[in-house]
């Protein structure tokens, strides 16, 4: 079956979601992966968006974090202070699913500024939103992001949200009890966090992708696990569900 690299990435990211997860969903690629999981192998997963919608089951992917359908299909909708205080800070979320503009090998994320410094950046990005506290309060963090040497860098320009810290030790030193980034899914491969060094290592390579390709698209010295497997290609039902979701979404966002 033919499929694109983005479809492979979305399917591979979706597979990591478990049926009993309570998942705090970032907009964009994380939202696509989480909803694909719900429409395939994890029908009972609880999806939470920071607009306060808990247990939402949207028919189309939301363009914003607070589209009406998220509320219409939710188990309940709470105020935003309650969302961050009781549900996130209270420790009710098992997985936070995030994307970023830049990340490093310890899963530290930047969505704030690129180039220059904070006060005079080359490019001003939207900022962190919920991410700084999602990164430290969820049980663990999954990241999904298209791989490129520009985005996967040795040193991020701004520490929007903490992964394992600049040397991999800071998270623990701060006394943070949650696991932090544990899995990174890209359009080329899947990386998991080495339990000792806390850096990402490649554990699964998507079909047709070479190790050289992964190395070229990574700004740090990439490490491969002792045992690297091939990611199973998307199957027919995963692809059908993803394409139908994307079609419904495109129609809805065009205002049809």
């Amino acid at each position: 079956m033919n499929y694109t690299a983005t479809e492979m990435m979305t399917v591979a990211a979706a597979r990591a979601i478990r049926n009993d997860d309570v998942c705090f969903v970032g907009i964009g690629m994380p939202s696509a992966a989480c909803n694909l999981a719900r429409l395939t192998h994890a029908p009972d997963v609880t999806l939470i968006y920071e607009s306060g919608t808990i247990g939402t089951k949207p028919d189309v992917l939301p363009l914003s974090i607070g589209d009406g359908e998220l509320c219409d299909t939710a188990v309940t909708t709470v105020a935003v202070p309650e969302m961050f205080r009781y549900w996130l800070q209270g420790g009710r979320i098992s997985v936070g699913f995030l994307g970023a503009a830049q990340l490093d090998k310890f899963g530290n994320l930047n969505t704030t500024v690129v180039g220059g410094d904070y006060n005079s950046p080359k490019v001003r990005l939207p900022g962190g939103g919920g991410a700084p506290e999602i990164a430290t309060s969820c049980g663990e963090i999954f990241i999904v992001m298209k791989q490129s040497a520009r985005g996967f860098v040795d040193n991020i320009d701004f520490m929007t949200s903490l992964g394992h810290g600049k040397t991999g030790k800071e998270r623990e030193a701060l006394g943070i009890k949650t696991r932090g980034p544990s899995r990174l899914t890209t359009d080329l491969c899947i990386m998991e966090t080495d339990p000792a060094s806390k850096e990402f290592v490649v554990t699964s390579i998507h079909p047709g992708v070479s190790r050289e390709q992964i190395a070229e698209n990574t700004g740090w010295a990439i490490r491969f696990a002792d045992q690297v497997v091939e990611t199973p290609a998307p199957n027919e039902s995963e692809l059908a569900a993803l394409r139908a979701l994307n079609e419904r979404t495109a129609r809805a966002h065009a205002g049809q």
């Binding site: 006060n119 506290e133 430290t136 800071e170 701060l174």
Partner: peptide
């Protein structure tokens, strides 16, 4: 609140 742990905004 429990927040800004290790976050760059706390420095700027």
């Amino acid at each position: 609140f429990r927040g800004y742990l290790g976050a760059g905004l706390a420095e700027v």
